[in-house]
Amino acid sequence: MLNLLKLKQEKAEQKAGSSESAEGGSKAGGKIIPAAQRRVQKDLKNGIEKNSWCQMEFPDPDDIMNFNVTLMPDEGFWKGGKFSFKFEIPSDYPHSPPKTLCTTKVFHPNIDLEGKVCLNILRDEWKPVLDIGAVINGLFFLFLEPNPQDPLNKEAAELMKDNLPAFKQAVQRSLRPGFGGYSSYGRY
């Protein structure tokens, strides 16, 4: 049974017009940091930036739900490139995965020219035990092991499957400044 005596006391105090609460009113304002943001701070302590290929930039240190990640592959087709991703952590994180968008135009089978990324753990294989570090590793892995079987940029995927040297060349060209996407692939 709920604490009858205490409830009665409180009720009596209310009736007596005493404005001070029985608890002494020191409820610390009862303010709490939402669980999603606490979780992000926890994710960040794992030192993702220890990897030399990864940089994080928080435009506002008080808004840890929005940040940019720059990946610099040190091997593979995209070696030497710099690719920026915008991260937006939803308020129901980690129940829902982070939202990511590649803000660098890239010629890649699994990233389209608008920056949408096809990565399993960002979609149907997301699990709350995964964290921001896992997502960054997953994105980095796309540059080491692109998957043309499951394409988002069909042209890139087909070129990779059909003509690997031409694909390599096209990727190299795309790494130059000012790449805005290919209008026609017929010439490869």
């Binding site: 940091i33 939402p34 943001q37 606490r38 701070q41 960040l44 302590k45 794992n46 030192g47 930036e49 940089q55 994080m56 930039e57 928080f58 240190p61 008080d62 808004d63 840890i64």
Partner: peptide, 15 residues
């Protein structure tokens, strides 16, 4: 707001 303020965070360079 219902958010947080970072007082100190040594784990991420830019923060």
């Amino acid at each position: 707001t219902s958010g947080m303020k970072t007082i100190y965070n040594p784990h991420v360079k830019s923060i």
